[in-house]
């Protein structure tokens, strides 16, 4: 394992060190004392595995395509911005716009996520992105969501798992949310339905991976306590405009 001490290192220099380590053939990189450095693992490819100790700055793993990033701490805003593939495991909380326009790959957050998690989440061909939030999320979860899967487990109590305006502008994909979401917290473009057997299979797969990533032995859920959110249409604004 290749180790980098990030204490007092400016982000530009740190990311240069990471690129150097990769070109030297590092397959596993431990970055210690991360303290707000932005753009770590941006636009990186391959099967490298990063472990970050501390709190990385914004735009962690933006445009990333393949690597695995484990954050032993909290993450800030715009984690996995436009990510194409790869895995991100956050042992603490995530900030706003988690997984903005992410097209593939997976994010597991042990704690909470901020506003606009999963905004513009996409999918294409075999790529179906997944975001799992162990705790609760802020407002505008899954805004403009065009594909992919979001699961919110609502720890610790499964109450009020998501904020307001949930699924506003959603036109693709699916969300699984533990607990009830009152109608007045939903965007106009989504509807609630009950998970069927297929959904439950997907959910139990997601939950077992969540437990594995965070080495949780308990935390089993009654799958009946989840609701499923789907878009009413894949053309939500198709009838707004008229010819002139």
């Amino acid at each position: 394992m290749f180790t980098i001490n990030a204490r007092g290192v400016y982000y530009k220099e740190l990311n240069q060190m990471v690129r150097q380590a990769l070109s030297d053939g590092a397959g596993e990189i431990l970055i210690k004392n991360v303290n707000g450095q932005c753009y770590i693992a941006d636009a990186l490819r391959g099967s490298v595995r990063f472990t970050l100790e501390g709190t990385p700055g914004n735009n962690l793993a933006a445009y990333m395509d393949g690597p695995e990033v484990i954050i032993r701490g909290n993450a800030q805003d715009a984690v996995a911005n436009t990510m194409n593939s790869g895995t991100i495991v956050i042992h603490g909380d995530a900030g706003d716009t988690l997984g903005y326009a992410m097209r593939g790959g997976e994010i597991f957050v042990r704690g909470n996520a901020g506003y606009r998690a999963g905004i513009h989440l996409k999918e294409y061909g075999s790529k179906i992105p997944l975001i799992v939030v162990g705790g609760k999320t802020g407002d505008f979860l899954g805004e403009y969501m065009a594909g992919g899967i979001i699961a919110v487990l609502g720890e610790p109590d499964g109450l009020n798992s998501v904020g307001r305006w949930c699924g506003t502008g959603m036109h693709g994909g699916v969300m699984y949310i533990r607990g009830e979401v009152p109608d007045y917290h939903l965007g106009n473009e989504v509807r609630i339905c009950k998970p069927d057997a297929g959904d439950e299979a997907i959910l139990s797969g997601i939950l077992s991976r969540f437990r594995r990533h965070f080495k949780l032995s308990v935390a089993t859920y009654d799958l009946q306590s989840f609701i499923k959110l789907v878009p009413k249409s894949n053309r939500p604004y198709g009838n707004v405009y008229v010819d002139f």
Partner: peptide, 10 residues
Amino acid sequence: RMIPLGSDAI
């Protein structure tokens, strides 16, 4: 665009 066929690109 890397989006599903026939879906609105918003």
